[in-house]
């Protein structure tokens, strides 16, 4: 286990280096000359050249990359063009707001996904099973940004039950209950696709386990069907489910949540990425991408470790 952990941590280094190299490449490819930004288009060629030399822009790409990386490591992530503030603190601030939404969506996805998957497996080939499968296919096919609009139209505009967006009401109480109310719709919408995927994986993993001989042995011991399914079949399917859930949560924080944050004006990472794309704020956008990548990679590590912890067969070797 320790050896595995050491290996896995060591492997973080190339992964993060690779990811940062991709981000750096994107910076280089981005349209617009940084000198234009600094000096304006009308500066003399000599002055431009001097500044290029000063900032090392004539150096080979890899030198520039490592210089950039050095800045990143020191916490100097550049300055947002739109907001005229350093990128890193801005990103950190948004990160927690996104985590809040991800938590809600993840919770929804796990409860609904695992629940539906287990029910579908237990009632394999029944009408319920087929219905769950059908709903999951449609949930997968549903664009979150569109479903968000439909929800807003239904529950906010028409029924007036829930706020249309944002994280807090402008007026009135600033309680946590208020935040919770704002979280319901985006949480459900963002959680729907992962729920569908988790349901399918949970169903498959449960069926795989329920075919095995020891299920008969459990019933022969006199265990109730409930105990057989929940205490044993689900427990055996858990490593597979955790693996897939971790991956889905990763995509969720950094992907699906993006569209949902835009639709519901949830002021997190995704909404910020959207604003920086619209405003052509490349330093901000790439800072957000880099940060998200780090989170993504660390999350994958966490899932891998967790998978080992709950799976004695893998843990042993």
């Amino acid at each position: 286990m320790l050896r595995f952990l050491a290996w896995r941590l060591l492997f973080l280094i190339p992964v993060l280096l690779g990811a940062s190299a991709v981000v750096f490449t994107l910076i280089q490819l981005a349209p617009g000359d940084p000198i234009d930004v600094l000096m304006g288009v009308f500066a003399s060629p000599e002055a431009r050249e001097a500044l290029r030399a000063k900032y090392g822009l004539n150096d080979p790409a890899y030198v520039q990359y490592f210089r950039w990386l050095w800045h990143i490591l020191q916490g100097d992530w550049g300055v947002s063009i739109q907001q005229r503030r350093p990128v890193l603190p801005l990103v950190m601030e948004k990160f927690w707001i996104t985590m809040l939404l991800t938590g809600a969506a993840g919770l929804f996805a796990i409860v609904v996904g695992v629940g539906a998957g287990v029910i579908a497996a237990v009632k394999q080939n029944s009408l319920t099973d087929r219905l769950i499968l059908l709903v999951s296919v449609f949930s997968l096919s549903m664009p979150a940004y569109w479903l968000g609009l439909v929800f807003i139209f239904l529950f906010s505009v028409t029924l007036g039950w829930l706020p249309t967006g944002g994280m807090r009401s402008f007026m009135g109480e600033k309680s946590n209950l208020d935040v919770l109310e704002h979280m319901i719709m985006p949480g459900v919408v963002a959680g729907l696709t992962p729920a569908a995927i988790i349901a399918r994986v949970a169903r498959a993993a449960m069926l795989e386990g329920m075919r095995l001989d020891y299920m008969t042995a459990l019933r022969a011991k006199g265990l109730s069907e409930r105990a057989v399914i929940l205490r044993h079949a689900l427990r055996n399917a858990l490593p597979t489910i955790v693996n897939m859930t971790g991956l889905q949560i990763g995509y969720l924080i950094l992907g699906a949540a993006l569209f949902v944050e835009i639709i519901f004006s949830w002021p997190g990472l995704g909404y910020e990425i959207y604003k920086s794309v619209i405003g052509r704020d490349m330093p901000m956008m790439l800072g957000l991408v880099l940060f998200s990548t780090i989170v993504f990679v660390l999350l994958n590590l966490l899932v891998d470790v967790l998978y080992r912890v709950i799976n004695p067969r893998v843990r042993a070797d």
């Binding site: 001989d213 008969t216 459990l218 006199g222 427990r235 799976n311």
Partner: peptide, 28 residues
């Protein structure tokens, strides 16, 4: 009933299987 039958299994009548390794819960 299923419930009455369940109370007989393992308590009044037990069973031992041919392929023992595969009749145990692999993660228990």
């Amino acid at each position: 009933s299923d419930e009455q039958m369940r109370r007989i299994r393992g308590r009044r009548i037990s069973m031992v299987f041919q392929d023992p390794a595969s009749h145990l819960d692999p993660v228990m």
